[in-house]
C-alpha cells in the first residue's frame, strides 16, 4: 500500500509542478525577442526531450541489469521505461514539428537531433512490438533486453552519421543566453515531468509484473485459489 501512496504522491506533485510551470511559461514569462510567443513551446518541449533521454538511458540500464542478474524486477522496469520513452519521443516529435512550422517554415528538417529522435522512436517502438509478439516471458525479457542494448548503442552512431550527412545545424541555446524569467518555468516543468515520470514508471512496472505472474502461473493453481 505504501508504494502506491508514494507513486500517487510523486504523480500529484509532478502534475502540480507541471501546472505551475506551464502557467508561468504561458502567461508570465516574456515573449522571446525573435521567436515571440511561439518560443513558449520550449517550456514543455525541452523537459520532454530531457526526460525522454533519461527514460531511454534507464531502459538501457535495466536491460543490462536483466541480462546480468536475470531478475524479473528489471524486466518489469525495462518494459515500463520502454513504453514511457516511446510516449515521450512521440510527443517530442509532435511538439518539435509545431515549433518548427512557425519558426523554420517547415514541420520537419533533416537535422541530426531530429533525425536521431525519429530513429530512436522507430527502434524502441519496434522493441515494444517485439515484446507484444513473444508469448514466453523468458524469451520476451532476454530478447528485448538484447535489442534494447543494440538500439542504444546505435543512438550516438546515428547522431554522428546524420550530422555528417547533413552538415546544417542550428545553434543550441545555453542557459547563459536565456533570460532568468525564462529559466524558472523551464526548471519547474522539468522537475514536474521528472516526478510524474517516476510515478508512471512505477505504476507501469507493476502492471508488467502482474501480467508476467499471470502468464507464468500454472493453470491448476489458479483454479484452486
Amino acid at each position: 500500500m505504501s508504494r502506491e501512496r508514494l507513486a500517487l504522491g510523486f504523480g500529484l506533485l509532478g502534475i502540480a509542478l507541471l501546472g505551475w510551470g506551464s502557467y508561468l511559461g504561458l502567461f508570465v514569462a516574456p515573449p522571446d525577442r525573435y521567436m515571440g510567443d511561439v518560443q513558449r513551446i520550449m517550456y514543455v518541449h525541452v523537459p520532454t526531450a530531457w526526460l525522454a533521454l533519461v527514460v531511454f538511458t534507464l531502459a538501457f540500464i535495466y536491460a543490462v541489469l536483466f541480462l546480468v542478474h536475470r531478475s524479473w524486477r528489471w524486466d518489469a522496469l525495462h518494459e515500463a521505461s520502454l513504453e514511457i520513452g516511446v510516449l515521450f519521443t512521440g510527443l517530442l516529435c509532435i511538439q518539435g514539428a509545431l515549433w518548427g512550422k512557425p519558426t523554420w517554415g517547415v514541420y520537419w528538417a533533416w537535422d541530426p537531433r531530429l533525425t536521431t529522435v525519429a530513429v530512436m522512436l522507430l527502434s524502441f517502438t519496434g522493441i515494444l512490438s517485439l515484446r507484444h509478439f513473444l508469448d514466453d516471458p523468458l524469451r520476451r525479457a532476454s530478447w528485448s533486453a538484447a535489442t534494447t542494448i543494440l538500439a542504444s548503442a546505435n543512438v550516438p552512431v546515428v547522431y554522428y552519421s546524420v550530422r555528417w550527412w547533413n552538415s546544417l545545424h542550428q545553434l543550441q541555446s545555453t542557459p547563459k543566453t536565456v533570460n532568468s524569467s525564462m529559466v524558472e518555468p523551464l526548471r519547474i516543468n522539468a522537475f514536474g515531468l521528472l516526478f510524474l515520470t517516476i510515478a508512471l514508471i512505477m505504476a507501469r512496472s507493476w502492471i508488467a509484473e502482474s501480467r508476467r505472474r499471470k502468464a507464468m502461473a500454472p493453470p491448476l493453481a489458479k483454479e484452486s485459489s
Binding site: 504523480g11 507541471l18 506551464s22 504561458l26 515573449p31 522571446d32 525577442r33 525573435y34 521567436m35 515571440g36 510567443d37 511561439v38 513558449r40 513551446i41 514543455v44 518541449h45 520532454t48 510516449l87 512521440g90 510527443l91 509532435i94 511538439q95 509545431l98 515549433w99 512550422k101 512557425p102 519558426t103 510524474l196 508512471l200 505504476a203 507501469r204 502492471i207
Partner: peptide, 28 residues
C-alpha cells in the same frame, strides 16, 4: 524581426502534450 502571433501552435503543443499524458495516466 520578431515572429508575430503563433499562439495556435503554442496551444496545440501544450494541448496535445497534456491530453496525451492525461490519457496515458488514465489508462494506467
Amino acid at each position: 524581426g520578431m515572429i508575430q502571433g503563433g499562439w495556435e501552435f503554442v496551444w496545440a503543443a501544450y494541448g496535445i502534450t497534456f491530453t496525451t499524458l492525461s490519457l496515458y495516466c488514465f489508462s494506467l
